[in-house]
């Protein structure tokens, strides 16, 4: 069944990756990113101390000064613009099942355009890529989401990750039984992948943001529509594993018009006016949870990622821009047994 609309996730099991291996992995990731010039050495030191920075901007609008916001946020959280000259940057929006009837389901085209402009200004070669999880017709996804118009307007190239040629990558997380993943060529060849999720509730796993968005790099031609192989291997496990196998990822969350209730597809609009940015997607997602008044440690894949892919403890996340405490607003969550406990208090249905 389908992560978005199918079976609930199966019960967690202890991840196979030991902390010493993960510490070594964090060192390798941090060192390699620094060597590539993509992040500054202060950030490497943060990663090694298992700290991360997250930037929040409020009062954001799709017609507003998103370029400035995104530039400020990336710099504040440790991205080094000088290291991006000539680098291949893949922008990965969430276009899981676009429809004009629910624009709050998918990453807004204005966010994609603004992020592309920032990276282009810094000399990067920008590509937009997505493998919609529920639609075989990617052209339809681009039209319905308004992204095709944005691509045409800005001369951006799009990679259909569902059908691209693939390469096998070993599963660096090993939380699931999957020994590896087929990643599309554009993902393999990218120097940096930028997760551009929508801030949404998820009716099986609670929250979908930076980490869950990376399901969209998995090619449908190999995993199906929906990507049912991943569901059978465990949603929290594979969210962790995919992100563990994709080390070069940062995150910029479209939290302007969000989705609450029966997300990630059928939920209702909740306007927050936020952009959330960070070079550690786990820390970004933990902050997104707090903004939604959901406890990060109760989201199964974040629990698994904590201390391995990044910090979720508020004390380990340095806040830049606005502080989340003054902006948090409870997102409605379905009154379903498997969602009980995402936060303390009464669930809203």
């Amino acid at each position: 069944m389908n992560s978005e609309q199918g079976n609930p996730p199966i019960a967690d099991s202890k991840p196979a990756l030991e902390s010493s291996e993960l510490d070594r992995r964090a060192l390798i990731i941090g060192s390699s990113l620094a060597a590539a010039g993509l992040i500054g050495y202060p950030l490497v030191r943060q990663i090694l101390r298992e700290r991360a920075s997250v930037f929040i901007a409020r009062n954001q609008r799709y017609q507003g000064s998103l370029v400035q916001t995104i530039r400020d946020g990336l710099v504040a959280t440790g991205l080094a613009p000088s290291g991006l000259q000539g680098k291949r940057v893949l922008l990965k929006p969430n276009l899981v099942e676009p429809t004009r009837a629910a624009p709050h389901m998918t990453t807004h085209p204005a966010v994609i355009q603004a992020v592309a402009e920032v990276f282009r200004t810094w000399g990067a070669e920008v590509l937009v890529g997505e493998g919609p999880g529920h639609l075989r017709d990617t052209e339809m996804a681009l039209i319905e989401s308004g992204v095709q118009e944005a691509l045409d307007s800005d001369g951006l190239t799009f990679a259909d990750l569902n059908y691209e040629e693939v390469a096998w990558v070993e599963n660096a997380g090993r939380a699931s039984k999957l020994s590896g993943f087929y990643f599309p060529r554009s993902v393999i060849e990218a120097d940096l992948v930028v997760s551009l999720p929508k801030m949404k509730t998820h009716h099986w796993v609670g929250v979908t943001a930076s980490l869950k968005n990376m399901y969209g790099v998995i090619p449908g031609i190999k995993y199906g529509w929906p990507k049912n192989v991943l569901h059978h291997a465990g949603i929290p496990h594979t969210v962790f594993d995919i992100n563990a196998s994709l080390p070069k990822t940062i995150s910029i969350v479209d939290g302007i018009e969000c989705m609450e209730g029966d997300g990630p597809i059928m939920g209702t609009l909740k306007t927050m006016g936020l952009i959330v940015i960070g070079t550690n997607p786990t820390a970004v997602d933990a902050t997104v949870c707090r903004l939604m008044r959901i406890k990060p440690a109760r989201v199964s894949y974040l629990q698994r990622a904590a201390g391995r892919l990044g910090p979720i403890d508020n004390g380990l996340i340095d806040q830049h821009g606005e502080r989340w405490e003054g902006l948090a607003s409870p997102f409605a969550i379905l009154d379903e047994p498997h969602l009980q406990g995402l936060r303390e208090g009464v669930l809203v249905s």
Partner: peptide, 13 residues
């Protein structure tokens, strides 16, 4: 029929 062996049945396959 599924898209991939060992998974659920879906419409198109």
């Amino acid at each position: 029929w599924p898209w991939v062996e060992g998974t659920h049945s879906w419409i198109e396959p």
